Amino acid sequence: MRIPDKLLSLALATFILFLSPVLTLADSPVDPLPSWNESQTKSAIIEFVSKVTRKGSPDFVEQGQRIATFDNDGTLWAEQPMYFQLFYALDQVRKMAPEHPEWKNQEPFASILNGDTSKVIASGKEGLMKIIAATHANMTTEEFASAVAQWLKTARHPKYDKPYNELVYQPMLELLDYLRANGFQTYIVSGGGVDFIRVFAEETYGIPPNQVVGSSLKARYEVRDGKPVVIKLPEINLIDDKEGKPVGIHQHIGQRPIFVAGNSDGDYQMLEWATSGSGPRFGVLVHHTDAKREWAYDRKSHIGQLHRGLDDAGKHSWHVIDMKNDWNRVFSFDKSSTTSNQATGLSQLR
């Protein structure tokens, strides 16, 4: 039986009508950075990733050379009103205090127990080293990791009343995912303790422990109670800050990153070294300008001071993220997000 032409036409039109939304959705580009407002920095990131991953591009970079390094405090998660690792150390001092009655008369422990945080910070490097020695050393690496993991489960940030590992910047999580989707290896390079960050880096950022570079104590192998262990010693091995960051990258990674992100003058040398290499390079600084959703600070801050980096960003062609204007969402729990425009797809041709 022959189907009338009008019926065939109607069936075809109906098919196309129902199929067209699917085609539109399939062909519609996906914004890889939805928590970023449309800005020069966002466009520059996408353009850089496109040119270094597109085969045939004069700036194409082989996948094994696509190394990206990120500072942690103030770049991937918040750092105010003081570094989160210091919050951990102070809490550990309070927890350990019953076993150390002598601390009531010893600084900086007495100030910690009296709640005088400003005096603790004023104790400087010498005071900090005493705190680190008491709370980070003379234990196995497993014991330390367990203590940090337990603290992260129970401790709450004083401003947001949320676990510290929820104070992570949603736009930077998207950037990490975007880079990895395009063949980049992402590393943390932090002045914070490497053993501290490794406890949560994989779950929080998708970065495995072997891709974390940080400050470290010396360590010793020994057998305790018949069990081989590594013991953390109260001696500095590496301060992975300022001039120490390029050294840490060289010793741990073995090559210069082509994409590097920081937020303070402690990251200056890392950006300077990385972006001075040959071939395409990208440097970015997170500028904390949002007093409402986070904090606004830079040149005069006691934490995450950004002075030289702001002055020299233009000279080095580093991109400066204006947190207030460039990000429509700061944290995943931030309710003040807006919908950004559609941009290029998540994965470029590798």
Rank of each mutant, 00 (worst) to 15 (best):
M1W: 15
P4S: 10
D5Q: 11
K6M: 06
S9T: 13
L19Q: 08
V22S: 10
S28I: 10
P34Q: 06
A44L: 05
A44Q: 09
V49Y: 10
K51G: 02
K55Q: 14
P58M: 06
V61L: 14
G64E: 08
F70P: 03
D73E: 05
A78C: 10
P81V: 11
F84P: 01
D91A: 13
D91N: 13
K104Q: 13
K104V: 14
N105E: 15
Q106V: 10
F109W: 07
S111L: 06
L113E: 00
K119E: 12
M129Q: 14
T141M: 14
V148M: 05
L152R: 06
A155H: 09
R156C: 06
P158L: 08
K159S: 13
D161A: 12
N165W: 09
L175Y: 04
L176Q: 09
Y178L: 13
Y178N: 08
Q185K: 10
Q185T: 07
V189K: 04
V189C: 11
G192S: 12
F196E: 00
I197K: 00
R198M: 06
Q211M: 09
G214T: 02
A219N: 08
R220V: 10
R220I: 07
D225I: 02
V229T: 04
K232W: 09
P234K: 05
P234F: 02
N237Y: 10
N237S: 13
L238I: 05
H252R: 15
H252T: 15
D265R: 01
A274Q: 14
G277S: 14
R281W: 00
F282N: 11
H288W: 05
K292D: 14
W295Q: 11
D311Y: 08
N325W: 00
W327D: 06
S337C: 06
S337D: 13
T338Y: 07
N341E: 12
S347Y: 07
